[in-house]
Amino acid sequence: MNECLLCEQIIAFSPSWKGLLGLDRQMNICPNCSKKFKHADIKDEGTILDKITTLYTYNEAMREYLHQFKFLQDVQLAGVFAKELHEHLKGAGTIVPIPMHPEKKIQRTFAHMDELLKSANVSYSNILDKTDTVVMGEKSKEQRLAMKPLFALKPGKTLQSGTYILVDDIYTTGTTLCHAAIVLKEAGATRVEAVTLIRAER
């Protein structure tokens, strides 16, 4: 018996063979809350990023979710998308969450991307460092790409060739992900993909 993380209703449990064998991953939200989120499954291909997958559309339910998770600091809500993230990321390559600036992390008290991945039970490597805290709001795309790199490889880290998957919550213009992908490719990654929870509409 467990309660829905969002509305606190008891989630009705339907026993299945998979469930009994512990193969079925438990849902952390009830069907009613779950259906308020709309799947997007947008896939893009590009040159720097070989593939970008977005899991959900940005709607009212998602806005509220991100508000409570990030702004109200409800860490427990990292579990809301555990099942989907697990299914998307398991065995797909080396998972690299987009890092937060250390000061920002202390302010929020947790790194939200790390928590999402921990809840989804996928292992990840924190191999990137955020280099500064420039807010990206009003610059043009060229200005943004021309800026000095937003990320750097953590000191002393080396990369093996292979597929790397960047994970972030919001895909806005792609600049953040591009910057991170460039760092990884320069360090030897053969393929860099990205998975984001949502894509901001413009």
């Binding site: 309660e3 860490v75 992390k105 302010q107 929020r108 947790f110």
Partner: peptide, 11 residues
């Protein structure tokens, strides 16, 4: 108790 969450706090 189910309405409390313990986590690894960066602060």
């Amino acid at each position: 108790q189910s309405r409390f969450t313990t986590f690894d706090c960066a602060k």
